[in-house]
């Protein structure tokens, strides 16, 4: 499947905005991920084509930056903070409750493809610890409660 027209256009726009292909490469990866949840090999090659760089150059970036996903993820990605302030406020209990409820650990996706659980660095929401960022718009939720995970699981795709 070829790269949707709007993605080609937004990548070209990023090249204009940032002054060329190089500074727009990471943005191109972000834009694809924003639209599709992750960056497949096919999309990476197509984006490299639009940018005029080699797929290897683009993958060199994709493999460095941790928030670019090169494997499929569920409809809703849950980034659960594993920072110290969240730990001090019960993040482990939240993690255990999510794992129990969804049957997945960090780095895994539920069998129905609904959720992916990922541990991540301090989200800058230590005043809402334990905190998470949910869905494609990375909506910050917290303080989370292991008894009621609705805020987390209904955080939206």
């Amino acid at each position: 499947m070829s790269l949707p027209e709007f993605l080609q256009a937004t990548i070209r726009q990023a090249m204009d905005d940032f002054g060329g292909a190089r500074p727009a490469m990471l943005e191109a990866l972000r834009l694809i991920q924003q639209a599709e949840g992750w960056v497949s090999d096919e999309r990476l090659q197509q984006a490299a084509g639009v940018l005029g760089v080699t797929p290897a150059e683009l993958d060199n970036l994709a493999s460095f930056y941790s928030m670019i996903f090169r494997r499929p993820v569920g409809e809703t990605v849950i980034l659960l903070c594993d920072g110290a302030s969240c730990w001090l406020n019960g993040a482990d209990a939240v993690r255990d409750a999510v794992t129990e409820k969804l049957g997945i650990g960090f780095g895994q996706t539920t069998a129905d493809g609904k959720y992916t659980l990922i541990n991540c660095a301090c989200l800058g929401a230590c005043d809402r610890a334990p905190a998470a960022a949910v869905g494609r718009d990375r909506r910050t939720v917290g303080p989370l409660d292991p008894e009621g995970l609705a805020a987390l699981l209904e955080g939206g795709a």
Binding site: G83, A84, S85, A121, C122, G124, A125, C126, D127
Partner: peptide, 11 residues
């Protein structure tokens, strides 16, 4: 970039 553990001021 604010990613230091415990930092949430620049946000």
């Amino acid at each position: 970039d604010e990613m230091e553990p415990g930092a949430f001021k620049d946000r």
